[in-house]
Amino acid sequence: MRENREFICVTCPVGCTIEAVIEGQELIELKGNACRRGIAFVREEISNPRRMLTTTVQVDGGALPLLPVHSNEPLPKHLLLAAAAALRRVRVTAPVTVGQVIVHDLLGTGVDMQASRPVPAKQATD
């Protein structure tokens, strides 16, 4: 059965409203996307929606108590809460460099979590 569904593309901040006709998990037609990435977004949204994950992990011996981390690729949406909960228990030791892989293959998804900033070691005088 064909149905009309409205999507808001979250791939970039433009946030196009896309009107799509879908049948089961198949995309029949769509309009409203300002670029091609909107097509890929709707396809994924009806089969396996994914989102980027950004959160923090704890740092030992760092100039800051927390390190912000981001996924190198979007994760399946239904795993976001479990992934964030797992990352709450992760601790790293300073110094950390930007881009450093903090968790490899998060929950067996093949996705890595990387450092979003450097955190130098805490100065002895601080």
């Binding site: 970039c12 901040p13 950004t54 959160t55 912000p68 930007v98 900033r117």
Partner: peptide, 25 residues
Amino acid sequence: LPQCIHNGFGVRALGADLTGPEYAY
């Protein structure tokens, strides 16, 4: 930006979808 740890920064200005801290750095 260092407190805006989510992504969505720089898609147009740098051609990359970065977190706030990365964009700042």
